[in-house]
């Protein structure tokens, strides 16, 4: 009999406490972001697909077309092609594509790169209409980033 009433009182009090919590939450500012209208800054540690690093001094990439990343890639999704040109030391990069549909974001290519020419991008809006949308031309992306 005693527990009958004490349960009622403690239960009722907990209900009132619950109401207090939600009313406080109701008048506190909202925390969600209206996504397509506004975007939040993405953390630099975010590991998106790979991108070529732009050298701060020359403004060009540092890739020497050695093909280590292509060989190292477990999914075989990177294609690197370079060619010899007159008057230029080493190879010139002509093709650098990434098939993102196969990429597992393991980061082996970034680890293995001898010149630290590769890095993760901050790209996170990765929706597309067709599979071909995910065949990224990394070299072109670098040029567009000017």
């Amino acid at each position: 009999m005693k527990s009958y009433f004490s349960e009622l009182i403690t239960g009722g009090w907990s209900l009132i406490l619950g109401l207090k919590v939600t009313i406080k939450a109701m008048f506190s500012p909202i925390v969600t972001v209206q996504y397509p209208r506004e975007k939040i800054e993405i953390t630099p540690n975010y590991r998106g697909h790979i991108d070529l690093v732009k050298d701060a001094e020359t403004g060009a990439h540092k890739c020497i077309s050695c093909g280590s990343c292509m060989r190292e890639c477990p999914s075989g999704c990177i294609v690197v092609e370079g060619e010899k040109r007159e008057g230029v030391k080493g190879k010139v990069l002509t093709v650098f594509t990434l098939d993102f549909t196969k990429c597992s974001l393991c980061g082996a290519c970034v680890e293995v790169c001898p010149t630290k020419a590769l890095d993760y991008s901050n790209e996170y809006e990765l929706a597309g209409y067709a599979r071909s949308d995910f065949h990224y031309d990394i070299l072109k992306r670098l040029e567009e980033r000017e």
């Binding site: 939600t22 939450a25 109701m26 506190s28 500012p29 909202i30 925390v31 969600t32 209206q34």
Partner: peptide, 13 residues
């Protein structure tokens, strides 16, 4: 709207 604000989101916008 109220459900949204209680959950710290704006509701229909």
């Amino acid at each position: 709207k109220l459900a949204g604000h209680i959950m710290l989101r704006p509701g229909p916008m």
